[in-house]
Amino acid sequence: MNITNQKLIMKRITYFFIAAFFPFAISAQENMFVVYSVKGTVSVVENKVETKAKIGTILNGNSSIKLAAGSFATLLCNETKMFSLNKAGSYSTANLKDSCKTNNSSVSANYMKYIWSEMTKSKGTPEKNRKNYMANVGAVGRGDINNVWVDPRLDSVNYVSGTIPLSWKAYTEAEEFDFKLYDDSKTKILLAKPVKKKHVNISELLKLIQPGKIYYWSATVKDEPENTARHYVRYVPKEEYQTFFNSLKKTDAVETEAEMNFRLGFVLEENHYIAEAFNHYMKATQLDPTNSLYRYTFMSFKKDFEIK
């Protein structure tokens, strides 16, 4: 056998092996996830080490992603398929591989489908088939009419301990309101009571709520149609709050006790821990009563949340 023939045979054998094992090589490929965006408390667990999830964090095959209630994360699989997680819990990347499936239909196939659907679609005319032509409301939308307004700051509340008022304002001279507390389905009413004030202290609800669960509340002027807006309250377990608080507390910057409390107050407020933010703003003011920024912020905070 001459050298040229030998080379040819080797070449064929190589091609055979490549062709035979290529499909396995493809199927054995691991999906790669990248965090595209995050909101709320989202962390990544890798080799039993939990770190805060950041935009651009890469998750390998053994990682998992943890979402606290009210948080969400958008992940990108294999740089192509995007999907969001919005329910609290821990998700292993191995369980997310179904979300990586892409629709592989070709442009040619889609063209044929498109032409066929356009040729066979018959909607009639507006005069003859009004059912197909009434997909519009015909008026401007302003939500449901109700005379109660809740400050957007109170739209989401993380509650750990202490108390804060769940307050509202009324556009009318109403003297009595209906307050309702719902479970996380937003439909099952846990508490319905008439109130004469424009707030209900969260401490009054403690018998009905449990740590780790989500609740919703609403307020309506008495005898008016029910307000469909539901406002979120999460009863955060103390341990979870402590972990979060410790992560906030850590800083490389040198700061005084007052500065630290002011910073913590600000970040906690941003994260909807209203009662806790109140405590830290107050501490900052007490520790440095001459600081006008602390005083002013604390006063505004109390006013915004109607804390007396």
Binding site: S37, K54, G56
Partner: peptide
């Protein structure tokens, strides 16, 4: 519906919510 470039909001950028290698 579709995001084929990585888009970061300025707030996330300022709050260091971004991986250092991104």
């Amino acid at each position: 519906e579709v995001k084929q470039y990585q888009v970061i909001e300025s707030e996330d950028m300022m709050a260091d919510n971004v991986d250092s290698n991104l």
